[in-house]
Design a protein around this nucleic acid. Structure first.
Lengths: 345, 345
DNA sequence: TTGAAAGCGCTACCAG
DNA sequence: CTGGTAGCGCTTTCAA
């Protein structure tokens, strides 16, 4: 591995000029720049990361803490990790993984030895121990997800409340007066933050709109197709003509099967919309309207905030809600009516 | 963040003595060591990672390349990532994530700028481009999984052949003379390396044992409960009394449902064994014997090899097969007989 | 527009 | 058993 010294010699300039030519932090004449770039190519020079870290003030590494609990939804989680890594690279940052017990201890460690410039927190639990940790350490920390106590924290998340309210509005606007929400598994309402937010928003908005609201889960501890179907069946029998789904992919699939088996059509007889899904609802047996959870949106913003925390205008603590987007696949129509024209927004 | 210089002054010793006291690379009297440790505590000293990297010859970071393709089985993959990270930490190593396009470009980058000491390769495809890359770079690289061309590579993987052969043997030894294999989805036989290994070993061993063998998939592109059920049904109707499962959890669940619906009992009427599963087969509707894929086993070994590659006796290129283990849950018995006593091995 | 040189904080060699 | 110090390879003043 060639060193900057060799590049300087080969280009016939000083070390500092090479450094500046590469960083662009000081104007360099086109002629010398060309010579330097040539030498860099020739020698296959790449600045040593360790030296760069020590001399500069940045390691260009973010820590990503993810406990990877047993009950974490793996596909969704993977999407968040991917989105974070990609976003970080766009800002010339690498991502260091802090999993398992290291999710906590590692935060202390990497902040103490200066291995990372900032920390991104994934898989946030309501009473997450990393919240207190984040307050103690000096390394900028951004939460992707919202814990109970967000005091002094920088958090990013989809606006689940707005997303759910929007879903209710879409159904109410179409004329539905009785709607149901098939939520997550029961345990999710303790272990995660967003399921309660969706449920609360559902009841709040339906009340505001003066329409009937029923709620059911999609399982106890684990996702259950049977439970999900039963929940949906109960709602339909009680007269619900609109369904808001906030459950796992297989639960949604089974609910669509239930609808079909009852001889009901979507959207002519039943309108359906999914909230907070990170899978493709268009690939279900019946394409379903969706107000999705978009990992990329949250992760991009989180990385942006982390980067910003490193310059002179660090972001204010507080929650940044990512605005929901609505993707129509024609699964909403007036009750007992023909499908409306497809739209996007 | 306190520096070594301050610790030295506080303890009334030289910088080098502090360094040696902490690294243990040179004997230090108990008295001075105590003073140093006290000073370290007082000041909350933690050696700066960047400086350590630059001065020492190690970054104490491993790269983990994982393309995170769309068709990667997320839960299994997550288990591998976790196991790798934990194993690395045990050797005082951190893990840097290289995902997406960076899975390849990143390998070049981190090897060029010396960011990592070794590279661990996950999610290995048969014609994985990282194979050629690994040959070009100087950074030690360990594959967790086996590509087609392993020439010059260090690879680690479960011995799927032995695992499958063992499964066949268990059934044959119990007296079964007609067995079936429900494999993965069709596309998996091109995108992954191990499914063909399992299938080939299944046919080879059944031939050796002189028993009838049938094979079926569990879907085309995506896992299909229907297809899996149909495959199993076909085998049972053809007279198979033993089933080897090498498919997704939901496919296995649906096969057990098929068996139950036919009024067949496990293991009295049908013996079942799972090969290469990374989920808990005891949690299925009927606990099923298993010769599992244990991420920890492969990852521990891979990390061990990576660490070893950094000292003076680097490991020989070649494939390290992890020996399979058999976990009995009593789902194998002689055909048309009572269940045998449960055993482990 | 360029160069010289002082660190960044630690490791490990050379002395004692 | 301990101390002094020369780097590790780069960034960034300070000078020209």
């Amino acid at each position: 591995m060639a060193k900057i010294h060799e590049v300087a010699k080969a280009a016939g300039v000083s070390i500092s000029t090479v450094s500046y030519a590469l960083s662009g932090k000081r104007p360099v004449s086109d002629a010398t720049r060309a010579r330097i770039e040539f030498a860099v190519q020739e020698l296959g020079y790449s600045p040593n990361a360790s030296a760069r870290m020590l001399a500069g003030r940045r390691t260009h590494i973010f820590a990503l803490t993810e406990p990877l609990r047993k009950d974490t939804h793996a596909p969704t989680h993977m999407a968040f990790v991917l989105a974070t890594a990609v976003a970080a690279r766009r800002h010339d940052y690498d991502v260091l993984l802090l999993t398992d017990e290291e999710a906590q201890a590692g935060m202390r460690r990497v902040t103490a030895n200066g291995l990372v410039d900032a920390i991104l927190v994934l898989d946030v639990a309501p009473d997450d121990p990393r919240v207190e940790l984040a307050r103690q350490i000096s390394t900028p920390t951004v939460f992707i997800g919202i814990p109970n106590d967000t005091d002094g924290l920088v958090c990013v998340d989809l606006d689940f409340e707005a997303a759910t309210a929007r879903a209710v509005d879409l159904l109410a606007d179409a004329g539905h007066t009785a709607v149901g929400l098939v939520g997550q598994v029961e345990t999710a309402y303790e272990k995660s933050n967003f399921p309660p937010r969706v449920r609360a928003s559902f009841f709040a908005r339906t009340a505001e709109r003066g329409i009937e609201a029923t709620y059911g889960t999609s399982g106890g501890k684990k996702v259950s197709r049977t439970t999900a179907r039963a929940s949906a069946a109960r709602m339909l029998e009680a007269g619900a003509t609109g369904l808001v789904l906030h459950c796992a992919e297989e639960a949604q699939a089974s609910i669509l099967a239930e609808i079909a088996e009852r001889g009901l059509r979507v959207p002519q007889d039943v309108s359906v919309i999914t909230v907070g899904a990170s899978f493709d609802t268009a690939a279900l047996s019946i394409p379903v309207d969706s107000i999705p959870l978009v990992p990329q949106a949250s992760c991009d913003l989180a990385v942006e905030l982390a980067v910003q925390a490193l310059d002179d205008t660090p972001p204010e603590p507080g929650i940044r809600f990512v605005a929901p987007t609505y993707i129509s696949h024609g699964s909403i129509a007036p009750p007992g009516d023909r499908p409306a024209a497809s739209s996007r927004g």
